[in-house]
Structures are given as structure tokens and as C-alpha cells.
Design a protein around this nucleic acid. Structure first.
Lengths: 132, 132
DNA sequence: AAAGGGCTTGACGCTAACGTAAACTGGTGT
DNA sequence: ACACCAGTTTACGTTAGCGTCAAGCCCTTT
């Protein structure tokens, strides 16, 4: 018994994620999404898998990754794409990415600390100004 | 008594940061850098301040910020640019940026956790394969 | 003086990530 | 039958962030 999938159209998906259909088609063109084509190429339909992928893509974008970087990262999730001895490569690549993520997080933390520092200086300065 | 400043040329600075002179000029064009012009517009010379700024710019880039976002952020450091009542605005803006940074860090951490999860699954799978 | 090295200012080229418009198709209500 | 709407492909336009010449200036070395 197959579970009933809530398949939605491209504009519905676009609306849901606050982007345009064009963007979604572009992601497909770049090989990031692979929607179901309803009976002999009529419409694209998107299910849970594509929604999950799109979510990852948009998060990647917010974090400043390029589409090709994101593509490589989400392909790590595709078990069927990484069969056999490809597994070792996937694992090794995953480790590299994880380390890069760690570095980025540290840089973010650093930047935040600096901004916070200046922020506090400013706040004090402001307090003195208003107190007089 | 003025401190002797170690002013360097554009290509020296470029070499130091592993970028090209063109990139540095572009940042100036965008209002991110303001080097000293040696005696009646002959050459650009870069001191400690520009080096610090460039460092921030490049870090911002690595973290996926646009040049205009970076510009706004480093302008928070410029005391002289934010005089008088502008201080309140600067402080408020700084708080917004700090919160955004916090969110980004959390997203990064989330992404890392997911990748790590899949990574461990893969590693186990790989172990079982090689053990047979 | 001539040649070279490093700097300068244009100006055009290029890629990524879409925006946007045109023209076509396919189902649906009236 | 006709209009309409939502989807499709194709293709050209646009912006950011530089790369890559071209042509000229200044200073030093030969």
C-alpha cells in the first residue's frame, strides 16, 4: 500500500517558500531538484523529497554557499547516487565539508564578538551623552 | 611626534592578502577602502587601518555577506562617521546585525548536525561493507 | 635617451543566479 | 467554440564582483 503523497504544483511550492517558479525551475536546470513529471511531460509535481531538498538549498543560500557547493552537499544525502566504493569518497568529502563548516562557525563567532565589543563601547558612549 | 607608519603599495597589499590589485581598487570604488594618495594623486598607500578593514571585508566575503552588507557593518566601526544622534541608530543597527549573526550561527550548527548525522550513517555502512 | 617596472585610469568581458517577456500547450468553466 | 488560467520552453536582460586588456604616467637603471 503506497502512502498518498501530497504533490503540489510549482507555483504552490514557490508560494510556500516565498520564491518564484523561475527560481525553482532554475534549481532543476542546475540539477538540484528532480520533480515528478505528470504523465508524459505535462507538469512538474513536487513531493516531500523535493520540499526537503528545497529547504536545504535555501538554507545553504542564506549561509552564503554557491549552488554548485550546495549541490555537492545535498548529493551526500542521496544514498543511491553514492553506491559501492563511492562510499569512501563520500565519507571523506563529508569530513572535509564538516571541517569547513566548523571553521565558518568559528569565524562567525569571532565576527560576532568584535561587533559586540564595538556595540558595547557605543552603548556606553551613548549613555554618557544622554546623562551629560 | 607622529608614529612611523608602515605604508605599503597596492600590489604589496594584494600579495599579502592573496588577492589582486583590481579587487582592492574595486573595494575602494565601492567605498569600502580609503587609502592615502601620495602627494597630488600619484599612488595609493595602505596603512594599518586599511589592512584591518580589508581583513574584515575578506572575512565577510568568506561568510557570504555582500559588499554592501559588509560596508554597513564596517561603517559601524567608524566613530567619526557616526557622530551625534547617529549613535542611537548605529547601536540599534548593530543589535539587529548581532541577532542576524546569531541566527546564522544556529543555522550553521543545524546544518553541521545534519551532515554529521548522515556522515555517521555512511561510516557505519562503510564499516559493514568492508567487514562483510 | 631609451628601456623597463610599477602605478594609474578607463573600458569592455565574464560568470552566477535569477528576472522578465514571448509564444505555445492543455485543461476548465460558460 | 471561446476565453481564461496555469503551466511549459526559449531566450534575452540584469546585477555583483571581479578579470583582463589598453594606453598613459612616473621613476629608476643602463
Amino acid at each position: 500500500m503506497v502512502v498518498e503523497q501530497p504533490l503540489v504544483s510549482i507555483s504552490n511550492l514557490a508560494e510556500e517558500f516565498l520564491i518564484t517558479p523561475r527560481t525553482i525551475r532554475y534549481y532543476e536546470e542546475m540539477g538540484l531538484l528532480t520533480p515528478v513529471h505528470h504523465e508524459k511531460m505535462s507538469q512538474r509535481l513536487y513531493g516531500a523529497r523535493e520540499r526537503a531538498r528545497l529547504k536545504l538549498i535555501l538554507r545553504g543560500k542564506r549561509l552564503g554557499f554557491s549552488l554548485s557547493e550546495i549541490k555537492e552537499m545535498i548529493n551526500l544525502y542521496d544514498i543511491d547516487r553514492t553506491e559501492g566504493l563511492q562510499l569512501e569518497r563520500a565519507v571523506a568529502y563529508g569530513e572535509k565539508r564538516l571541517q569547513e563548516l566548523e571553521e565558518k562557525i568559528q569565524e562567525f563567532t569571532l565576527l560576532k564578538a568584535e561587533l559586540l565589543d564595538y556595540h558595547q563601547q557605543f552603548t556606553e558612549l551613548l549613555k554618557k551623552c544622554t546623562e551629560e
